[in-house]
């Protein structure tokens, strides 16, 4: 089945391969360069992940400040690493997230509970897509799970009848999910009506992933504007 159909219809998401690994590896190198850990651990992403897994929340937060420099071109790098697929979904003229996200999840039960949610909760346009990619192989449950569109919509309609958005029914869905084990160079692209999240995981490694949101600039916006998006033309 075509990736476009998987993302827009069922199941609402697709695992795809990064098209330009040169750019994506550069992105990972740039992340390692900006990471506040001893230089000897920066040569290998897995060594860096072990060091991050040992950090306190405060240390990670301090480290995140350094990523502001890294994040400056992150959106463009992510978009340029999958140009054909993005062009197929949205055309060449895009609104892309001004500042893409880097998320670091530390193993252990006290960490990494990103509860189940729709991307729509932030007020992005329904025409937005989310591109999520880990910076390493995912050999444990540190990834993100996605719930098929049909189920997500059924829950959304139930909540709407009750006058709720992301209420307890959604928040308590986290328990039994199993995130897929992706390889470095794979990404998940999904539409904003798909429920997703991550679960606490046990591992010696932290999980590092980047994500960016994009839409065609010919499609309407919702609440997000220049505060969140910028114009970008694919070459």
């Amino acid at each position: 089945m075509k990736i476009n159909t998987l993302i827009n219809k069922e199941p609402g998401y697709a695992i795809c391969s990064i098209e330009n690994m040169k750019i994506f590896k550069k992105l990972r190198d740039s992340f390692l360069k900006n990471l506040k850990i001893p230089h000897k651990y920066k040569k290998n992403i897995n060594n860096a992940r072990v060091q991050i897994a040992k950090m306190s929340k405060a240390e990670i937060n301090r480290s995140m400040i350094n990523f502001l420099t890294f994040n400056k071109n992150l959106s463009e790098m992510m978009i340029n690493s999958c140009p054909k697929l993005i062009k197929d979904l949205c055309g060449k003229d895009l609104f892309i997230q001004r500042r893409a996200h880097t998320t670091i999840n530390v193993p252990g039960n006290e960490h990494t509970k990103q509860w189940t949610h729709y991307e729509m909760i932030s007020g992005i346009s329904p025409f937005t897509y989310i591109f999520w990619a880990p910076l390493h192989d995912l050999d444990d449950d540190g990834g993100a799970y996605h719930i098929d569109l049909k189920t997500s919509l059924k829950i959304m309609k139930k909540e709407e009848k009750e006058g709720l958005v992301n209420g307890p029914r959604v928040l308590e869905m986290m328990g039994l999910k199993k995130p897929p084990r992706l390889k470095f160079g794979q990404a998940i692209i999904f539409n904003p009506f798909v429920l997703h999240g991550n679960i606490p995981f046990q591992s010696g490694f932290a999980r590092i992933a980047c994500n960016v949101r994009f839409q065609s600039c010919n499609k309407p916006l919702l609440q997000k504007n220049t505060d969140y998006l910028k114009y970008f033309r694919l070459s």
Binding site: E160, P220, L221, L222, T226, Y231
Partner: peptide, 27 residues
């Protein structure tokens, strides 16, 4: 120029819509 591009973009009135309507709009 960027402000103009965004000014020209259509905007869905979030106060006059619902989650279901937004899904319909998407399709």
């Amino acid at each position: 120029q960027e402000a103009k591009i965004f000014k020209d973009a259509r905007i869905i009135d979030s106060q006059k819509t619902s989650w279901s309507k937004l899904y319909k709009i998407k399709n």
